[in-house]
């Protein structure tokens, strides 16, 4: 591919659409991970929860005509999504139960959940469909895309607001951005959000003022299961229309990285997910030129690490500057 064509495809409205598609399955689980992490219970089972929800959504929506004969056809994807979300929340609750009641290590519990999800989904897929690779022979439903009316005739705006085919973004992409705003308001503008942050920051102090830290942590982990489940459902019922063994391909772990890259703040995590999405989209487009694929595959992690370094350098400079000001002010 010539450089000209590649650049054209990068500096286009369709590129933004790609970034949003790629970033959605990172933003959703990152929001979940953020809630539990701020509550002091890091949830490394995001990957497993995504996988389990992705699987449940496809199976329930695919078998809905048999299982719920009375239900109208439009309800199939929503039944699938509901089941997926319930499974995600149940897994979050299970982690909380193991960690808070049975005092297991939170990291080991998360790891076990990931292994469980990766094995159980394949096992159950075989039980339901007789197939261990993917559900491509099962006609499963897709969550709808939302099309913004009237803008498709406007050249750039149409692609920007409705994607390159003008069919609109998947409803989960809208939900991802909405969730960022909701979680920001929850964390910084509501008492419950302050309780959550206090629980994570200093549990003893939180408990001393009457916050039930056990309950807060239960809620945080169940909520993180909810958000991660949405990410998984997007993968198998929006982005694609199949479930495939281990199809999350590490996105749950990238979401964890995104939380810390975003300085454990919802807006920061959103920006970090978009940086990662941009780098991935850049990689797929640059990859059409005759450059070694290993180099192209390096782009997303390299950009992420570079962004981390720049962020830390700036943060340190800010802290040093503040310290200097403090010394100058307090100097006799």
């Amino acid at each position: 591919m010539s450089l000209e064509v590649v650049l054209q495809s990068i500096f286009s409205a369709a590129f933004i659409a790609t970034v949003i598609r790629v970033a959605t399955p990172l933003i959703l689980p990152a929001m979940g991970g953020l809630l539990s992490d701020l509550g002091g219970v890091i949830n490394i089972a995001l990957e497993g929860i995504m996988l389990a929800a992705a699987f449940t959504g496809v199976i329930v929506s695919g078998f809905a005509p048999q299982w719920f004969p009375g239900a109208p056809a439009w309800s199939y994807p929503w039944l699938g999504a509901l089941a997926g979300v319930l499974v995600g929340m149940a897994m979050g609750w299970l982690i909380a139960f193991f960690h808070l009641e049975l005092k297991t290590d939170i990291i080991l519990t998360g790891l076990a959940m990931n292994i469980l999800a990766s094995g159980a989904t394949v096992f159950l897929m075989f039980s339901f469909t007789g197939d261990k690779g993917s559900t491509s022979t099962l006609a499963s439903a897709r969550l709808p895309s939302l099309q913004i009316p009237f803008v498709n005739n406007v050249p750039v705006l149409g692609t920007l607001l409705n994607g390159e085919n003008g069919t609109g973004y998947n409803i989960m992409s809208y939900l991802a951005f909405a969730l960022v705003a909701v979680i920001w308001i929850f964390l910084y503008r509501t008492p419950a959000g302050a309780h959550l942050r206090a629980t994570g920051e200093m549990p003893d102090a939180a408990q001393s003022v009457g916050i039930d830290i056990r309950r807060v942590r239960y809620q945080a982990l169940v909520a993180s299961g909810f958000c991660a489940a949405l990410g998984g459902l997007y993968l198998s019922m929006g982005y694609l229309s199949i479930f495939q063994a281990n199809m999350t391909a590490g996105r749950g772990f990238i979401a964890l990285a995104v939380i810390f890259l975003g300085n454990r703040n919802p807006i920061g995590a959103l920006i970090a997910a978009l940086i990662f999405g941009t780098a991935s989209a850049l990689g797929t487009r640059l990859g059409t030129m005759a450059i070694p694929p290993q180099f192209v595959e390096m782009i997303p992690p390299a950009v992420t690490i570079a962004a981390l370094i720049i962020y830390n350098i700036r943060r340190r400079a800010r802290i040093n500057a503040a310290a200097r000001r403090f010394q100058e002010q307090t100097a006799p």
Partner: peptide, 23 residues
């Protein structure tokens, strides 16, 4: 000519194909 870097990531496969179609 492009490589996905793995055999179990249909989402990546979709993006690669879409990038090629867009070019």
């Amino acid at each position: 000519r492009q490589f996905a870097g793995g055999w179990n990531d249909p989402a990546k496969g979709k993006e690669l194909a879409k990038a090629q179609y867009s070019q």
